[in-house]
Amino acid sequence: MKNTIIECKDVSFTYDRTEVLEHISLKVEQGEFWALIGPNGSGKSTLIKLILGLIKPSSGSIELFGENISSFRQRERIGYVSQKSNAFNSGFPATVLEVVRSGLTRKTGLFKHFTKREDQQAMEALKIVKMDSYHSRPIGELSGGQQQRVFIARALVGKPDLLIMDEPTVGIDQQNIASFYTMLQTLNRDHGIAILLVTHEIDIVTDLASHVACLNRTIHFHGVQSDYKKMDDLDISNWYGHPVRRVHQSDEEVER
């Protein structure tokens, strides 16, 4: 039996008297790759913040690894790449290695210093994202795509069981997006890391993810990828709020 990694039970969130999320129930299990899709303002980032414990739900409960979020302490089991990661202060004087190593802050423990062991772990994480040769470069000198890989390495360095990413491809050029998603698939398949990915790119991601959740204030669909693919574009357009036409890899191959 698979372990449950995230479980949202009837979660609602109200901000300034506006219901941002209503009755969300979602379960992510070990080794699954979830794509969380929805239009702008649908509450995707809010749901991620709730799952990460950055904000508290107005009602309902969230469990991480079987433990209520309010008492959850094993933070090192979660890797997180935010939408704003690459909007950091590019003048910040830090090397790639220093940034990645900072992902081990909690795991190393209070009053302790990073040693060669942590440097080695950071180098291993950089190897996974193919950025090990950049370890001594200042983070601000890298391209947007390279920076995002470094932030993924920071999220991976603690060997998490769950990787949460909020629109990580913002600011990355189209050419790098494809290799980025391939890398995510490898992480999920070869390293067994559960992934929850928030994205706008419904065409690419739904081909990669094992599960899909469609959110627009409430969950309109959640299930395995094959069931999502069977859904009619009109149904998706209805909850999306505007016409949506999905292009699958197979369609493109047919067109060719």
Binding site: L54, E76, Y80, K84, S102, T105, R106, T108, R154
Partner: peptide
Amino acid sequence: YKELFALSFDREYAKVSGV
């Protein structure tokens, strides 16, 4: 030092990772 670095570089990430 390591906590101050993490908080200075990315406060949100530091919070999520339990600093």
